[in-house]
C-alpha cells in the first residue's frame, strides 16, 4: 500500500489502482455523512477534485492522486457513508483508476514514511 500527502492510500489490484482515504484521515474528518463519487469513465489529471466528502463537521475534496481514468467507483459508500469511518483502508475504497505507468507509484510514500509524515 502506498500513501499520498493528501492522506489517500493506493493499492494495485489486477493492474488497476484502488484509491481510498487513510484511517488517519477518516479519524480526523469525524463521522462521514455524505460521499459524492465521480462518473465511471472520467479522465482525470493529478490534483483534480474528484470526490466530495462531508463529515458532521465540514466538506472536503479528495483529489485525483495520479493522471488516469476512473474505471470503477464504490457505490456502497454513497449509500452508507459511515462505512468510510468503519473500514477506511478496506471495504470503503473510493474508486479504481487505470493509469498508464504503474511505476509512478514508486515515488509515493510507503507505510513507514506515511506514519512518519502524520506523526
Amino acid at each position: 500500500m502506498k500513501f499520498t500527502e493528501e492522506h489517500e492510500w493506493l493499492e494495485v489490484e489486477d493492474d488497476l489502482v484502488v484509491v481510498g482515504i487513510t484511517a488517519h484521515a477518516a479519524e480526523q474528518l469525524g463521522d462521514i455523512v455524505f460521499v459524492e463519487l465521480p462518473d465511471e469513465g472520467r479522465e482525470v489529471t493529478k490534483d483534480e477534485e474528484v470526490v466530495v466528502i462531508e463529515s458532521v463537521k465540514a466538506a472536503s475534496d479528495i483529489l485525483a492522486p495520479l493522471d488516469g481514468e476512473i474505471v470503477e467507483v464504490n457505490e456502497s459508500i454513497v449509500a452508507d457513508p459511515g462505512k468510510v469511518n468503519e473500514d477506511p483502508e478496506g471495504d470503503a475504497w473510493f474508486f479504481k483508476m487505470k493509469i498508464e505507468d504503474l511505476s509512478v507509484l514508486d515515488e509515493l510514500m510507503d507505510e513507514k514514511a506515511y506514519k512518519a509524515f502524520i506523526s
Binding site: 463521522d31 459511515g82 469511518n85
Partner: peptide, 9 residues
C-alpha cells in the same frame, strides 16, 4: 467539540 464517541453517536 467532540469526545471519543464522535458527533453522530
Amino acid at each position: 467539540v467532540q469526545y471519543k464517541l464522535g458527533v453522530l453517536k
